[in-house]
């Protein structure tokens, strides 16, 4: 089995990247391979990065309220590219009313401000089965 590969992305116009960077480091310290995309990524750029990096997980950091536009687009593009095996998690400011809608889209990991890093690490370890190394 190979190491879990995670793309951490910061979609939209927001530049508040403290959370994205802290979680990226925490996942790396937990033994995962982490690719941080940097700021101002469109859903197209994020899915392209996931494809190129052969990611198991995409982590989206969204604090701006744009999640109900960005998340469906990312999920649709993953489907389009045949990347349904990629687990998508979202961290940020996500109102209760939107959480069920995101879960219905297949985004099961939703992490609000104050979430311990360890619970995100645990979630990923439990929900992602790393695929065997392609030979």
């Amino acid at each position: 089995m190979r190491t879990i590969r995670v793309v951490i992305a910061k979609p939209g116009l927001d530049g508040h990247d403290r959370g994205a960077k802290v979680i990226a480091r925490a996942l790396r310290d937990a033994g995962m391979e982490v690719i941080y995309t940097g700021l101002r990524q469109t859903p197209e750029m994020i899915v392209a990065a996931a494809l190129q990096e052969d990611a198991d997980v995409i982590g989206l950091s969204i604090l701006s309220g744009a999640h109900m536009h960005i998340c469906p687009r990312v999920m649709a593009l993953l489907k389009e590219k045949g990347l349904e095996h990629v687990t998508v998690v979202v961290g940020g400011i996500i109102p209760d009313v939107d959480q069920d809608k995101l879960r219905a889209m297949g985004i099961t990991g939703i992490f609000l401000p104050g979430t311990p890093m360890q619970s995100i690490v645990d979630f990923i370890n439990q929900h992602v089965v790393p695929r065997a190394e392609v030979v």
Binding site: G12, L13, D14
Partner: peptide, 17 residues
């Protein structure tokens, strides 16, 4: 955010913002 980033509402990056 579109105003802060100097983007009009019809710019692709303004989606949902």
């Amino acid at each position: 955010l579109p105003t802060l980033m100097g983007r009009d509402p019809d710019h692709p990056l303004s989606l949902g913002e």
